[in-house]
Structure formats: C-alpha cells, structure tokens
Amino acid sequence: MKQPTGFDTPEVSFENIHHTPQDWRDRAALRFVKFLRFFADRLFAGRYGHRAVVLETVAAVPGMVGGLLQHLKAIRHIRDDEGWIKELIEEADNERMHLMTFIHIAQPSRGERWMIMITQAIFYNFYFFLYLFLPRIAHRVVGYLEEEAVVSYTQYLEQIDAGTVENVPAPQIAKDYWGLSDNARLREVVIVIRADEAAHRDTNHDFANKIADGSHN
C-alpha cells in the first residue's frame, strides 16, 4: 500500500510544468494527447468526477504495460532494470486507486461502465505496441497525459472552491490510502491525486529523456 503523502491540506506545494517538445517524436506525442483532450472536453464538459472515472481507467494502463515490457526486456538481456519495473508497477497501482476513489464519488452509470471497458480494451492494445516499438514516445505520451491530468484536476479544484461542485466527504478508501484525516473532503482528495499525477508526469518525462540520451536502452 502506498504510504501517506502528507498532502492532506490545501497548502501543498505544487508546480504546473510543461515539457517543451524537442523533436518530431515529442511533437507527435503532444499532438496525440491534445487530440484525446479535445474529445474528453466535449464528452464530459464540466462533469469532472465522471471524466476522472473514465480517464483514470486509461491512466492505469501505461504503468502496467511498461512494467511488463521492461521486466521481459531485463530478463531477455540479463541486465538490471535500474528500478524502472517497480516504479512503473507502482504508478499503475496508484492510478488504479484514483479510479477506485472516483468510483465512490461519481457513481458511474451503466453506459459509462461500458465506456470504461471499451476504452481500456482499445487503449491497452494501442499502448502495448507503442511501448514495444517506440518506448520513448510511449513515455512522452504519458508525460503529456499527466500534464493534462494536472490541468484537469486544477480546474476541478477551482469548481469546488467556486461552489459549482459539491465538496462531499472523502470516501473511506481515499482516507485509508493517502492517510487523510477523518473529516477530509473531496477537495483534499483532488489535491493528493493532483500531486500523484504531477509525480507521474515528471517520472515519465525523465524516462523518455533517459531513452533519448541513451542512458537507458
């Protein structure tokens, strides 16, 4: 289980960072993510809880795929993975907990549950082959996806602060996982999840950079 981050107050330090594309690979990854963002914005508009349920289903895929392929690669080449496998699997589990949390908050409809299954099936197969043949782009895609997640959760917080979204009590699963206080509410949940997404953003951009400069093959 993830150890409590301590980010259970609105005063958590936070940076909204964007990785500037360096070449056609980075630009392709960014354009793909912006394409996905376009459809997500139109499909869910201001329904941030329901949006999180579907998008966290996608977000939980890359870490598991990357961890699996890095595991097989390390075995195949009989070399150390440099901590990548553990990092990626933990990322996947963390994103899964985001999903479990928002399931309690948003209560997705039967249609949205079908959308979750279909989206996961499509994205898993796409990402598996992307990572298999172009791991640098795969990590950059995740880095940019996490940048967009940070933006979305920041907007979510703004809606909560404005009173547009009800600041409901945090579900017990979130209190247990992040070590939040008994009286924690949705606002604190969104803050810790945004911090997680920012960490995944930085990790995946760093992994893409290491592949690019040849320090990890």
Score class of each variant (00 low, 15 high):
residue 164 T to H: 12
residue 186 L to C: 03
residue 177 Y to T: 13
residue 170 A to H: 06
residue 14 F to V: 03
residue 160 I to S: 06
residue 12 V to C: 03
residue 14 F to T: 08
residue 177 Y to V: 07
residue 54 V to H: 09
residue 155 Q to Y: 09
residue 157 L to R: 14
residue 144 Y to D: 02
residue 148 E to W: 10
residue 136 R to V: 09
residue 207 F to P: 00
residue 138 A to G: 12
residue 94 N to K: 06
residue 27 R to V: 03
residue 198 A to T: 05
residue 16 N to R: 13
residue 144 Y to S: 02
residue 97 M to Q: 10
residue 126 F to Y: 15
residue 58 V to G: 01
residue 95 E to G: 08
residue 183 N to K: 15
residue 125 N to M: 02
residue 84 W to A: 09
residue 98 H to C: 10
residue 1 M to C: 07
residue 93 D to F: 11
residue 36 L to D: 04
residue 48 Y to S: 07
residue 2 K to W: 07
residue 101 T to D: 02
residue 169 P to N: 05
residue 162 A to Q: 13
residue 207 F to T: 05
residue 12 V to N: 05
residue 9 T to K: 15
residue 131 Y to F: 15
residue 160 I to Y: 03
residue 113 R to G: 00
residue 39 F to G: 05
residue 105 I to L: 12
residue 132 L to G: 05
residue 168 V to A: 12
residue 44 F to C: 02
residue 168 V to I: 12
residue 29 A to H: 01
residue 161 D to Q: 11
residue 106 A to C: 07
residue 36 L to Y: 07
residue 98 H to V: 08
residue 77 H to W: 08
residue 34 K to M: 13
residue 45 A to G: 01
residue 141 V to D: 04
residue 128 F to N: 04
residue 79 R to G: 08
residue 28 A to D: 04
residue 213 D to M: 06
residue 104 H to D: 15
residue 26 D to P: 00
residue 122 I to L: 14
residue 153 Y to N: 09
residue 66 G to S: 13
residue 86 K to G: 02
residue 152 S to M: 12
residue 191 I to P: 04
residue 53 V to L: 09
residue 130 L to D: 01
residue 104 H to V: 01
residue 93 D to E: 13
residue 86 K to Q: 14
residue 83 G to I: 11
residue 5 T to R: 13
residue 18 H to M: 11
residue 18 H to R: 12
residue 95 E to M: 06
residue 151 V to W: 08
residue 121 A to P: 04
residue 86 K to M: 10
residue 200 H to E: 01
residue 108 P to N: 12
residue 26 D to K: 00
residue 215 S to A: 07
residue 186 L to V: 03
residue 114 W to R: 13
residue 77 H to E: 14
residue 177 Y to N: 04
residue 210 K to Q: 12
residue 10 P to R: 11
residue 186 L to F: 02
residue 140 R to N: 04
residue 193 I to L: 11
residue 69 L to W: 07
residue 137 I to R: 11
residue 97 M to C: 02
residue 26 D to E: 01
residue 196 D to P: 04
residue 8 D to R: 12
residue 92 A to D: 03
residue 185 R to M: 11
residue 128 F to T: 09
residue 72 L to Q: 13
residue 14 F to I: 09
residue 158 E to L: 10
residue 58 V to Y: 02
residue 169 P to S: 06
residue 158 E to S: 11
residue 129 F to A: 00
residue 149 A to S: 13
residue 157 L to P: 05
residue 12 V to H: 07
residue 139 H to G: 05
residue 169 P to C: 06
residue 197 E to F: 02
residue 159 Q to T: 00
residue 43 L to A: 12
residue 123 F to Q: 04
residue 136 R to P: 10
residue 55 L to K: 09
residue 157 L to N: 06
residue 205 H to I: 11
residue 110 R to D: 09
residue 163 G to V: 03
residue 123 F to Y: 15
residue 24 W to V: 05
residue 29 A to F: 01
residue 134 L to G: 01
residue 15 E to L: 07
residue 146 E to G: 05
